[in-house]
Structure formats: C-alpha cells, structure tokens
Design a protein around this nucleic acid. Structure first.
Length: 576
DNA sequence: GCCGTTTTCGGCCCGACTGTTTTCAGTCG
C-alpha cells in the first residue's frame, strides 16, 4: 500500500474535526484537529514517512493521539474514529453547515429533533415551516435558509478568483483612491495582499482627511456595480465581475492595527494573539491592550504592531503561521528585480505568438542576461511542427539571432513532453546538441501516483534534462494536481542536480509555495519561469516571484537570479 | 487534543452580529 499523501491525511483530520464538532466535542479538541490538518497540509516532507520514523510528534500540533491515528491509517488504510463517526452522522449534515447562520450545533439539533440529514431535507422543512417550532429557531431562520437556497448554496460553491484577476481590480481601486484629494494612506489587505493563489474578496483600508468624501468616491468608482449605503467609516460593495469589496476608513493612529488585522491570515492572527497573551498583551483590530499598564496601545503602522509584540515586521506573504512568528529577523526574499534570466518560453515555432528576435528583444528590455527558447516538443499537440529536423533548423535560427543581438545570451532549448514511460522526445544526441532542456508532463495525467512519480523521476535522471516544468499540472480553481509523490521527485531532483521550476502562469504557480519551500530546503535549485507565449506575458513572473516569496525563498535559492557566467555551468551538460 | 520563561493540569484570540430571548448561545470573520 503506497503511503497516503499529506493532503489525504490533512483532509481526514479536517473531516474528523467536522464530525467531532457535530458530536458535541469541546471546541478546543475540534480546533486541535483543524490545526493538525493545516500543519500536515503545509508540511514540506512526507508526514507518513515522518510517522514511520517516529518523528511526527515533533511537528507543531501533532501529539501522541494524532500520531496513533496516522499510524492506524498507515497500517490499516483507515482511521477507526473516522469510520465510527461516519456511521453515526450522514454526510449531508456537514453539507448543511455550509448555509449561513447554520453551524454544527444547530445542524445537530435539526438532525436529532427533526431527522433532517441533508440539504434537500432542510429545504423542504423550511418550505413547510416546520423549523420554527424548534427552540432557538424562528421564522427569520426559515427565511434565511430559503434565501440561501434561492441564491444557490446547494449548488457548487462559487469559485475563488485568481490573484491576477483580483489584483487587476484591487490595485486599480487602491490607485484611484490614492489619487483622490481626500485620501491619505490607502492599502489593500486580506489574502490579496498576502499574494495567495486565489482570493474570495478584497479588503481596502484607508485613512482620509475627509472620510465621507472618500467613501462616496469609492462607491462611485466605475468598477463598482453596487455599494451598500456608506456608513460613517465603512461600506461593502460588489464589482461588475462579482467580487465583494470591503472598504474601511480608519483613524490614522489605528491604521497599523486595522491593516494587520485585515491582512491575516486567520491562522497567523490567532497564533500571534496566543503568543501575545503569554506576554500579557491582548491584540485586536483596535489596538494592543497591555496588562502592565491597562492601556490600549494604538499603532499607526504595522511595524509598530509587531514591534510592540517583540517581533520584526513580517512580510504579508509569510503570514500563514508556518513558522514566521519564530523568526528573530526576516530572511531576504526574492524580488522581481533579482531575476536575470527566463528559462521557459515559446515562439511561433510552436504555440507562441512572437518570434525568437521579438522574445529576445523584449527580454533584453526587461534587463535579462539570458533566456531559453523552449518550444513544445514534437509529440505534444502544440509542438507538432517541431519535428527533429525542424528543431535542427531552429537551433541554427537561434544561433543566428544570438549572434545578431548583443547583451543577452539566447539558449536553444525545448520543453520536452515526458512520455508515460519517462522517455523524453527527440533522440539523446539531438537533446545533447541543445543548450537547455526543460521537461514537463502534458499528457496522460491519470496514470496514477506510482507511475507518474516513476515517469518524472526517470526524466530527472536523463543526463540532458536540466529542469522539470510545472510539476503537478494543477490549474488553480479549475484542475487539481495529478497524483504524484512530490517528495520523491524532490529527492530525485536533489540527487540528480535537476532544477525544479516555479511556473509563473497565474493559474499554475506550480510548484506551489509548500512544495517550493520543501524543494529548496532539500537543496534543489529553483527556477522562476514565465512560460510566456508572447512578449506581453514575460512579466507574469510576478506571480512566480509571489509564490517563491510565500515559500520563503531568497535570491540565493533561485537559480535564475545568478548572472549568466554563474548560471551557465550549473547545467548538467556543462557540469557533467 | 495539544502544550508549557506562571503550568504535566488547566487553560486554549478577539470582537461583532443575529435571532431569539429576557441575558445569551451560536455563528462568523
């Protein structure tokens, strides 16, 4: 039996949390399971392997009991408590808690008293006004349920919005508000500020000389479709694209507290407050209450908030409670300006829109010292035209352009498909003639974890394979990663000196933050590549850089921050 | 269920809102 991936262990713990909550367990026990689920999901190495090694209780949030549960999962393929509770509560009960205002306590009551065990049964009971007889439930509750059903809560939940789309709106709003004469400071908060993969809504915080005027200006922005009646210092709006936007104007001396509070994440804030309590400090969005003097300290800046707690200012990308609160000093994080090359891009030879010359000129304008032209290989649909003979002609073309354009090294490469048996496209001789090979999976996603892992590990072992592209094949919000043992690939990449790419496409960001951090810790060299299909998308490395920063990567862990003279010898074909 | 510069037991972040209730539990972010 293959080891369960971290994601599977995490989702079982989350399910246990839901089930124990329905079972009426004390909330702190439920929270312990949720914390453990997050810790497992964010772990950079195999939790199953750690358990076998007897090291899993070293993880924060995993104690003896949870260790036993993971051990049971490894030994028997299941966790007894999960089986027992699944038998006790129908799955529809957890679905019911998706409704606004209906949590586990009330769902349990509906089940016990009225036998309601699914969204459908709940809807029918609300329509028949059978809920209002129950103590604690009234007509308003029935109405709220029916409103929620009418809005389609029982259908697929609304997808979150890609960061790139959210920031297009959020940055625009912030800029417009900054330009308004009544505004002072304006910042985006929330998960967009943390550069998460996708976001649910936008939070904007401001200070202003004339708050009502700024609130009115916000409501009148072109992107806003509708806005609540502006209150004294806040309003809630929806954009034409359907995004919710919360806007708050606050006192300047509290700006730091509110910005910190609204930036989150929830987990970061909870952990931050727990630590503060141990020092006699109580953190809220309004200030920091100090037991020592009984005063609430207001902070105009986030720096002041963290300083009061004895911490350095923590970059928003790190605020996920993944160890950032243990830092004495913040390590350097990679920036856009650090990038000196881009090792994955397409031209008209396959599915790109621009020529070699155009891509090279655009890269030069970005200040790059080197790029690799990596059109799709022949076995992939987009690369049908790049036959072996065509690739040989492309080698000549790239060499000519490289000679003609000063100031940038243009590598001839390929993005080779990885076949199901781990072979790359093109003969080894032809691959060896190239300057650079990045290998990616584009076909047969469903071969299963074992074969997929063996397939990519085999590619790592190829002497001409310099890097692996978009390792897990995920598309954020639309396609889950295919089954693959990422930790095994990381081990193989470290052993074979194969680089791993963070693909910067806004909907890929693959490696993700957790995997990229694990890979770097294992000594794998990371690349941040655009996978650009035209000159106008070279800049999407912004999203790859964001993922790298969320992975705690500094410039020294990202290979393409090196100048060409230092990057060139790292390639397997040169290093030998 | 986890955890420890107050602790191996007794705590476990903070505040707002809501509906139903006569003082608050449950839910949410």
């Amino acid at each position: 039996m293959p080891d369960p991936p971290n994601a599977q262990i995490a989702s079982l713990f989350d399910e246990l949390a839901d089930l124990y909550e329905l079972d009426g367990a004390v909330i702190h026990r439920v929270m312990a399971y949720r914390n453990a689920a997050k810790a497992v999901r964010d772990a950079g190495t195999s939790v199953a392997a750690m358990t076998r090694a007897g090291e899993v209780t070293e993880m924060p949030g995993i104690g003896k009991t949870l260790e036993e549960k993971i051990t049971a999962l490894l030994d028997t393929g299941t966790i007894p408590a999960v089986e027992k509770l699944r038998a006790k509560f129908p799955p529809g009960l957890v679905d019911m808690t998706r409704l606004p205002g209906l949590g586990p306590k009330r769902a349990r009551k509906l089940f016990d008293e009225l036998g309601i065990d699914s969204l459908a049964a709940l809807k029918q009971a609300a329509e028949e006004q059978r809920l209002r007889g129950l103590r604690g439930f009234g007509p308003k509750f029935e109405e709220a349920m029916l409103t929620a059903f009418a809005a389609g809560v029982d259908e697929t939940p609304r997808a979150r919005v890609l960061l790139s789309r959210a920031l297009l709106i959020g940055d625009g709003i912030a800029e417009a508000l900054r330009a308004h004469p009544a505004s002072d400071r304006v910042e985006l908060a929330g998960s967009a500020r943390r550069m998460a993969d996708a976001v649910k809504d936008l939070d904007v915080v401001a200070t202003a000389t004339d708050p009502p005027a700024l609130l009115r200006a916000f409501a009148a922005l072109d992107v806003i479709e509708q806005c609540s009646e502006p209150g004294e210092n806040a309003c809630r709006a929806r954009t034409h694209t359907g995004m919710a936007v919360d806007f708050r104007v606050v006192e300047p001396d509290q700006f730091g507290n509110v910005l910190q509070h609204l930036t989150g994440s929830k987990e970061h804030n909870v952990a931050l407050r727990e630590r503060a309590v141990r020092k006699g400090l109580h953190v809220s969005e309004y200030g920091i209450l100090d037991d020592a003097d009984g005063k609430t300290h207001r902070c105009p800046t986030e720096e002041a908030v963290y300083a009061k707690l004895g911490l350095p200012w923590i970059p928003p990308e790190l605020r996920e409670n993944r160890g950032e609160l243990d830092l004495d000093a913040i390590p350097p994080l990679v920036e856009m300006a650090d990038l000196k090359g881009d090792l994955h891009m397409h031209t008209v030879a396959s599915d790109g829109r621009n020529t070699i010359e155009q891509m090279a000129t655009a890269a030069l304008e970005r200040g790059y010292e080197y790029i690799a032209i990596t059109d799709h290989s022949a076995s992939h649909g987009f690369g049908n035209d790049v036959s072996p003979d065509e690739l040989r002609r492309q080698i000549e073309r790239v060499r000519e352009v490289n000679a003609a354009i000063d100031g940038i090294e243009i590598l001839i490469g390929t993005e080779s498909n990885i076949h199901t048996d781990g072979r790359l496209d093109y003969d080894d001789d032809l691959l060896a003639e190239l300057d650079w090979v990045i290998a990616s999976v584009h076909t047969s996603f469903g071969v299963g974890s074992e074969q997929m892992t063996a397939r990519v590990v085999a590619a790592c072992e190829h002497p001409s394979c310099d890097a692996i592209g978009h390792l897990t094949g995920r598309k954020i919000e639309t396609r889950p990663p295919y089954a693959i043992d990422v930790n095994a690939v990381i081990e193989a990449a470290a052993r074979t000196q194969t680089m791993l790419e963070i693909n910067s496409s806004a909907d890929r960001r693959d490696l993700n933050d957790v995997h990229a951090r694990a890979a770097a810790q294992a000594g794998v060299r990371i690349l941040i590549n655009s996978d650009a299909h035209g000159v106008n998308t070279l800049g999407i490395v912004r999203w790859g850089v964001a993922t790298a920063r969320r992975a705690w990567l500094g410039p020294d862990q990202v290979a393409n921050t090196l100048p060409w003279s230092e990057f060139a010898p790292l390639r397997k074909r040169v290093a030998g």
